[in-house]
């Protein structure tokens, strides 16, 4: 995988900026390689230098961990977002009760709620080469305030399956440490999903498909694609 865009690709990317309409097509050609030029320029225009810094940090982190083993990659990605992003509800951040943000948006704002953390980590690990089959975004019921507490809330975490039958490792923002699922007695899994099937089947038509906007998950995938992430 090319580490860093060379000069020629920079020139190409500059062209792409001119033709926003062609961005999707161009991104489709550069499968699974994030278009950081585009991400950076979008961060600059939307969030200013702090956004650019955050994206550059993300880019550096991904580059640094590209050759690391999977455990290290998981740890670094989990740590990066848990540190970078401040947890907050969607309403204060986005002015909406529930908003699924792309990694660019989360990094730009420096904040996110549980699914924003999970999405950002999912996308990062996918960029590092971990296949969608081994990753799950998992809706969980989280018990808050210790084992005896009766307060629970809807939450989302990212699960990593070393193999299909393995117990998943849970990447969470409530507890910074990555733990096996069995050590997360506070979480009760409800449903899981990933982008398998969506990427494959819907990929070709999805950008032109108005129905994509009606599903939060397909919507956020779509927006990521437009921002330069595959």
């Amino acid at each position: 995988m090319p580490r860093h865009p060379d000069l020629r690709r920079r020139a190409l990317a500059a062209c792409r900026r001119c033709w926003v309409g062609l961005a999707v097509v161009a991104a489709g050609l550069a499968l699974a390689a994030p278009d950081f030029d585009r991400l950076l320029s979008l961060a600059q225009s939307r969030y200013g230098s702090s956004g650019v810094n955050a994206v550059q940090a993300w880019q550096r982190m991904l580059a640094d961990t590209a050759d690391a083993d999977e455990a290290e990659q998981l740890r670094r990605v989990n740590e990066f977002f848990n540190r970078r992003l401040r947890f907050d509800d969607d309403l204060p951040i986005w002015g909406e009760a529930d908003y699924w943000a792309t990694p660019l948006e989360s990094l730009g704002r420096g904040a996110g709620d549980c699914e924003d953390f999970a999405i950002a980590k999912y996308v990062s690990l996918r960029q590092l080469g971990i296949s969608a089959e081994r990753l799950r975004l998992i809706y969980v019921r989280a018990q808050i305030g210790g084992p005896t507490s009766r307060i629970s809330q809807a939450h989302m975490v990212l699960g990593y399956y070393a193999s299909a039958e393995a117990e998943p490792l849970i990447l969470d923002n409530l507890i910074g440490e990555i733990r096996p699922a069995s050590r997360r007695a506070d979480l009760f899994p409800v449903f899981s999903f990933n982008s398998a099937g969506l990427w494959v089947g819907g990929a070709a038509a999805s950008s032109a498909d108005p129905t994509a906007r009606l599903s939060r998950w397909r919507d956020v995938l779509e927006r990521m694609r437009n921002e330069g992430l595959q």
């Binding site: 799950r136 998992i138 699960g159 399956y161 299909a164 039958e165 117990e167 998943p168 699922a181 069995s182 899994p189 409800v190 449903f191 899981s192 999903f193 990933n194 398998a196 099937g197 969506l198 494959v200 089947g201 819907g202």
Partner: peptide, 19 residues
Amino acid sequence: AAAGVAQVQDGWNQYGTLT
């Protein structure tokens, strides 16, 4: 039209893929 794909969970474990 492409098939719909979704994951089935058995607790924390993967149970299977539904097509």
